Amino acid sequence: GREWTEQETLLLLEALEMYKDDWNKVSEHVGSRTQDECILHFLR
């Protein structure tokens, strides 16, 4: 997939603090990424 922007990464980190590993909520918060993309990015 395409590179994550700084904004997307910030949203991901913010969402992780709020929702922990509720990836459905996390991906909704990021908006432009799927659950799978969020998980894969997080694991890097």
Rank of each mutant, 00 (worst) to 15 (best):
G1H: 08
G1D: 14
G1S: 12
R2W: 10
R2D: 14
R2K: 14
R2G: 09
R2C: 12
R2V: 12
E3L: 10
E3Y: 14
E3W: 02
E3A: 10
E3H: 13
E3G: 13
W4H: 04
W4M: 08
W4N: 05
W4A: 06
W4I: 14
T5I: 07
T5H: 03
T5L: 07
T5N: 09
T5W: 01
T5D: 09
T5E: 12
T5Q: 08
T5S: 11
E6P: 06
E6K: 13
E6A: 12
E6I: 08
E6D: 07
E6W: 07
Q7R: 14
Q7V: 06
E8I: 01
E8C: 02
E8S: 00
E8N: 02
E8A: 00
E8P: 02
E8L: 00
T9R: 14
T9E: 10
T9F: 11
T9L: 09
L10W: 08
L10V: 10
L10C: 14
L10P: 05
L10A: 10
L10R: 13
L10D: 15
L10H: 12
L10T: 14
L10F: 10
L11C: 03
L11P: 02
L11I: 05
L11F: 09
L11E: 05
L12E: 08
L12Y: 08
L12N: 00
L12A: 06
L12T: 02
L12Q: 04
L13I: 11
L13H: 07
L13D: 11
E14N: 07
E14V: 02
E14W: 06
E14Y: 03
E14M: 05
A15V: 00
A15N: 00
A15F: 02
A15D: 02
A15H: 01
A15W: 00
A15L: 00
A15C: 03
L16R: 15
L16I: 12
L16W: 11
L16T: 15
L16G: 09
L16C: 14
E17F: 03
E17C: 01
E17W: 01
M18T: 12
M18H: 10
M18N: 10
M18V: 10
M18K: 09
Y19I: 01
Y19M: 02
Y19R: 02
Y19Q: 03
Y19G: 08
Y19S: 04
K20F: 06
K20L: 02
K20I: 10
K20N: 08
K20A: 08
D21G: 09
D21P: 11
D21T: 07
D21A: 09
D21M: 04
D21I: 02
D21L: 03
D21W: 02
D22R: 06
D22A: 03
D22S: 11
D22G: 04
D22E: 10
D22Y: 01
W23Q: 02
W23H: 01
W23T: 01
W23A: 01
W23R: 01
N24R: 10
N24L: 11
N24V: 12
N24K: 13
N24T: 10
N24A: 11
N24I: 08
N24S: 13
N24Q: 13
K25A: 12
K25H: 09
K25Y: 03
K25N: 06
K25T: 08
K25S: 10
K25G: 10
V26D: 01
V26E: 04
V26L: 03
V26Y: 02
V26P: 00
V26C: 15
S27H: 12
S27D: 02
S27I: 07
S27G: 12
S27T: 13
S27E: 13
E28H: 01
E28V: 05
E28I: 07
E28Q: 07
E28T: 09
E28P: 03
E28D: 15
H29W: 03
H29C: 04
H29R: 07
H29V: 04
H29E: 02
H29G: 00
H29T: 04
H29F: 07
H29N: 07
V30H: 00
V30E: 00
V30W: 00
V30Q: 01
V30F: 12
G31I: 07
G31Q: 03
G31M: 09
G31C: 10
G31N: 06
G31D: 06
G31R: 11
S32Y: 07
S32E: 13
S32N: 11
S32V: 07
S32W: 02
R33D: 00
R33F: 02
R33V: 04
R33S: 02
R33L: 00
R33G: 02
R33M: 02
R33C: 00
T34Q: 14
T34Y: 01
T34R: 13
T34I: 04
T34C: 05
Q35G: 12
Q35Y: 07
Q35K: 14
Q35E: 09
Q35N: 12
Q35I: 07
Q35R: 12
Q35M: 09
Q35A: 10
D36Q: 11
D36K: 07
E37M: 04
E37N: 01
E37C: 01
E37H: 02
E37Q: 05
E37F: 00
C38Y: 00
C38I: 04
C38M: 00
C38R: 04
C38G: 01
I39V: 12
I39Q: 14
I39R: 15
I39D: 10
I39T: 14
I39N: 15
L40W: 15
L40Y: 14
L40H: 14
L40R: 13
H41Q: 06
H41M: 07
H41S: 04
H41T: 07
H41P: 02
H41W: 08
H41R: 10
H41G: 04
F42A: 11
F42Q: 15
F42L: 05
F42K: 15
F42C: 05
F42D: 09
F42S: 14
F42N: 15
F42I: 06
L43C: 14
L43Q: 15
L43E: 15
L43V: 14
L43I: 12
L43K: 15
L43S: 15
L43F: 13
